[in-house]
Structure formats: C-alpha cells, structure tokens
Design a protein around this nucleic acid. Sequence first.
DNA 1: CGAAAGCTTGACAGCGTTCAATACGGGTGG
DNA 2: CCACCCGTATTGAACGCTGTCAAGCTTTCG
Lengths: 180, 180
Amino acid sequence: MLARSIALSKGRRQIVDILLPGDTCGFFQSGGGHLFDCEAITEATTCAIDASHLRKLRIGCPDVGKAIDEELVCAAKRMAEHLVTVGKLSATERLLHFLHWLEAAYSERGLPTHPIALPMSRSDIGDYLGMQVETVSRAFASLKKRDLVGLLSAEQVVLRRRPGSGPRRLGEALGASEMA
Amino acid sequence: MLARSIALSKGRRQIVDILLPGDTCGFFQSGGGHLFDCEAITEATTCAIDASHLRKLRIGCPDVGKAIDEELVCAAKRMAEHLVTVGKLSATERLLHFLHWLEAAYSERGLPTHPIALPMSRSDIGDYLGMQVETVSRAFASLKKRDLVGLLSAEQVVLRRRPGSGPRRLGEALGASEMA
DNA sequence: CGAAAGCTTGACAGCGTTCAATACGGGTGG
DNA sequence: CCACCCGTATTGAACGCTGTCAAGCTTTCG
C-alpha cells in the first residue's frame, strides 16, 4: 500500500490517492519534476521503468500508450470520487465509505477481506480523509457502536454489511449515506 | 467556463474541476461511458474530435499522445490541489484560495483580472468548494470585511493583494493561509 | 409593476477541532 | 519475567465553525 500525497508546511500533508498492488505510481510528472510525493505504507516491491525507454516503446506500440492513458484515467476517477467523499460526507460517513472502498479494492485483487487489513496509522487515515486523528477515532467508535464495523485490533477490521448498503455506485451510496 | 461534476442523489452534485478556455473536456471515458458530467457555466464554444479518428492519429504521431497525456496529468494535478483545498482549509480560506486560483488562471489566458469575472452562481461555488450556499455568502462577507476582496457586484470581484500573499505554490499558500 | 429566483443575514444546534488527560501495546533493559 | 518507556490510540470537555431553518433583500424577467 502506497500513499500519493502533497506535502504542506509544518510536516502536514494531504494524501490524494492510495495505491494497491497492481497500481502504477509513476507517470505523474511534467517538466521533469514530480507532482506528488509517494510513500510506502507497507512493505512494497516496485518495478522501475526507464522513462526514455518507455517513450520509445510507445511509438511502435499503441497499446502501451493506451495502457498509460487507462492508468491516468483510473487515477483521476479515484481522485474525483475521493473528492466527493471529502467534500460532501460527514466524518463517520467518510470513514465508512473508505472502508467499503478498501474492501472492494482488496476483493478485486484477491486479498483477504474478512477481516480487512488496515496497515495505515490513524494519522494517515486522517490525512487521507481530511480530518483529525481524534475524529478518526471517534468515527471508529461510532461505527462500532452501531455495529457497522468490528474492531479486532486497531488495524484489523471487519465490515458488517447492513441490508442494502452493499457495494454500489457512488451516487447512490451518497444517497444512502444520509443515514437517516 | 465549464464545470466537470459528479451527479449525486436528489439533484446534488460535486464539481470536481473547472475548465477555462483552452482546456480539454473530453478524454475522461472508459469502456464507452463518460465518467463525469460536464456543464457550461458561461456561453462556450467547443470543438468535437472524432474518437476513432483521434485514435488513428495517435499511432502515426507521437506528439498527439503526448498532448493527451499532458492534459490528463494537468487535470489530475488540478484535482489533487483542489483536494487539498477542500480537505485542509476552512470555508473562508477555500474561497480565497479559489479566487486567487481563478485570477492566476485568467491571467495565464490573457483574460481581465481586475476585476475578475465570477460567472458561476453561489450554489455552483458551494458545489465546487464543498460548502453550503450560505457559507459561501458568509465567506465573502468575511473577506470583504478584512479588505481581502472587494465586491463590485455578486459576480465582479477585485482581489486586494495582501503583502506576501501573492500567487505562490500550494504548500506555502497553505502555510500562509493559516491567517494567523 | 409583480413575481420569481438568487443572494445575504440572523439565530441556533450539531459536528469537528483543539487541548488535555488517559489507556493500550510493543520493545528494551534490568 | 517483570518493570518501564515510548509511540500510538482512545476518551473527555470546551470552543468555534459550518449546516440548517427562516426571514429579508436584490436583481432579473415577464
């Protein structure tokens, strides 16, 4: 698990994207400078590709260009949905939404989802979801009290699926997340 | 001015990006479906490019692919910085940051910046910055009271530059935006 | 001129931040 | 093995900001 982030003053940062096995963490540079920091949350094995070599490769092989585009578009899509999460949801809803997203992402990659591993610290979660560490804790407490999640430990979480709150599109998820 | 947004339930939406003359509003589709809605805020003249034609064009001409990548990366960069704005700034700071961003964007394109035009409604601004209409109004009032902006009308704004708060990189801007 | 839509302002409740204190867990050294 | 210590997580209390509801106000358009 990697975190793509933007560094701010005084050691603060905003995590803008989270990368899981199979995702690509390069590509985001223009004019030679990288746009984002990228930091490993867990142990990670990465594969470096020489930029000039890749550039040459693209010319002969259109599929390469297409794959790069696909990756860029996916990252943009993730960020846009994340923007909705941060912009429109309450703290508890953000956390729940994030956990469901993680579960879906794990499941796509064949990683265990019961429980789901949460290797990042509370402060990482806060930097990702745009809230304070304390608020993250409170949100966990709130979800636990409602039996929406179970906490085996601080980094081992089980999601209890509420009827009708399964994985769904974001627009509907938001409608449902109003937790009336 | 166009707004790229994600539609939510009950007519709500999150605007994820704002496009100005020279920006490209396509590209964001995968599997035939568009990822975002795109809506005109002002009158706009657009230029449609046939997708299959473009695909063929890329093969022979590497610059085309590079230009598309450039556009994707720029959009991702905008969204990431916007994410910082929404995730880490208070309502008033968000608005001020947005106005400065607009000024810089206008200035890059040779559009007038004194005053700067604000063709979008308060509700659009709210959907972009992740806050309510009333909060947008309050933020304007607060900025006006501090003489950071002047309101000629609801859509004609002048930015009064505070010493040391000119256009700068986002990391520093955030440091300064703590408005101590 | 009247109506409708958008903008602004006020009051109040609720949520999230802040500051502070406490609990938990892993590791080290005695 | 236990005591201690550190970093991290949780919990508590008070405050401030923002969402909400409601009422005026301005502008636009018929």
